[in-house]
Amino acid sequence: MNSPGSIPTATLRSPARLMSALMLGLTGVASFLIVAVLLTVLGYLLFRGFGGLSIDFFTRLPTGNPQDPGGFANGILGTLILVGMAALVGVPFGVLAGIYLSEYGGRGLGAWLVSPVRLVCDVLAGVPSIVIGIVGYELIVVPMKGASAYAGAAALAVIMVPIVARTTEEMLRLVPASFREGSLALGATKSQTILRVVLPAAGGSVITGILLAVARIAGETAPILFTIGGSRLLPGDLDKEFPSLTLQIYNAARSPAPSEQQLAWTGMVVLIAILLVLNLAIRLATARAIKNRVGG
């Protein structure tokens, strides 16, 4: 027992302080390494790919001729269309499933469905994308007798749905129960409460989840490797072979011709740039969502 007023001196402090300094050092080194690795990758990518950036890359089609390889105009456009198609299906399904898991599943009719649905979502989110690509090939491409944008978008949507569903569920769960109570006590129905109070309150973070899923599928290669077939033409019929940026990077990188390899490097820079823009959008949306929630 210390007498009142006596403060323990350095005896206990030194090891604790040492430990504290050690922790600071370790966490700092780890953070530095992560940044260093990322910068190395990005730097090397820019070093190899930046030189190939030209108007041609964005406006011309790939020629297949190593003397004049052309550009990836079709691939960029194709990826945007594929991601858009996948999102058109994946976002509504994912958001609705997330709403079900968070708002409707808890009790009453269909409560037994919640755990299985959540489990399926988690398992589906963990399935390697190559598996989804090959299964998509067997289930869609083979019966339809050919690769198509539909098959590719379907494979991407399958990857997207569980991500959107689970993030939507998590974000809706963060909405205070008092908002729901307040709305219900005013005589609102459950759907009015969800649409007018819960979803808007979670709005920014739900959009963040959607953008995360979009960013994820925009960079996917394996699911479309077997499903869209690839094309040297601009995107056209959705039920025919379709171009995609990631697929073109994959193919060009395997080419022996240095000019085609250059195209692959440049393609990667463009892909990373697209994802970076998406990521910034996500951060902006998240920051706004957090700002809205402060004090709520």
């Binding site: 008092s178 908002f179 307040g182 006590a185």
Partner: peptide
């Protein structure tokens, strides 16, 4: 309610 719950 006990805790004020204005909607955001």
């Amino acid at each position: 309610f006990q805790k004020s719950n204005p909607f955001p």
